[in-house]
Every structure is written in C-alpha cells, then in structure tokens.
C-alpha cells in the first residue's frame, strides 16, 4: 500500500502511522451534550468499502486525511490536514 504524502509524494505505508477515523476532525462544541461527545469518542462506522482516516507521515510530520477502500485496498485520495 502506498500513500501520496501531499508534501513528499508517493511513499510506502511503512513511513506512515495510523491515527484513527477522520471523525476525529469533527470535534463537538465544548457545550455539546454528553451523547455528542460519546459519539465523537466511541462510535465508528466499520465500512466494507470507502473509508476516510487520519495518517501521520513520520519523516516530514504532515497529517494526512486518506480516503481509501477497505475492500480493494485502493488509496483514492490523500489531503493534508495540518
């Protein structure tokens, strides 16, 4: 599996660390009720197909949101988050 780092170009999966679902980008407001925070922390989809998650490119320090397919292992898109 290869991921295109927006900074460095296509690199091997070994250079990346997985940091979980892209849901982490949608942080509830501070005054949101407990169920919103419960969803944010614990509820995840487990799709057979397209999914979006966060990866960290260790050599350059770029956070990348990767859209990929869990069935075919295709990497569809990768964009810098930070």
């Amino acid at each position: 599996m290869r991921i295109s780092c927006p900074c460095c170009g296509p690199r091997d999966r070994r250079e990346f660390t997985y940091y979980g679902a892209a849901d982490y980008l949608n942080r509830p407001a501070l005054d949101a009720d407990a169920s919103a925070w419960d969803d944010y922390l614990h509820l995840r989809d487990n799709p057979a197909g397209e999914t979006r998650d966060l990866w960290y490119h260790d050599p350059c320090g770029t956070w990348v949101a990767v859209t990929r397919d869990t069935v075919t292992h295709a990497v569809i898109a990768a964009e810098a988050v930070a």
Partner: peptide, 10 residues
C-alpha cells in the same frame, strides 16, 4: 533529497 526511515531511524 528526502526525509525517510532507514529501518527504524529517521
């Protein structure tokens, strides 16, 4: 040039 891992070392 590149930043890359040499085994486990950057």
């Amino acid at each position: 040039c590149a930043r890359a891992p040499l085994n486990h070392m950057q």
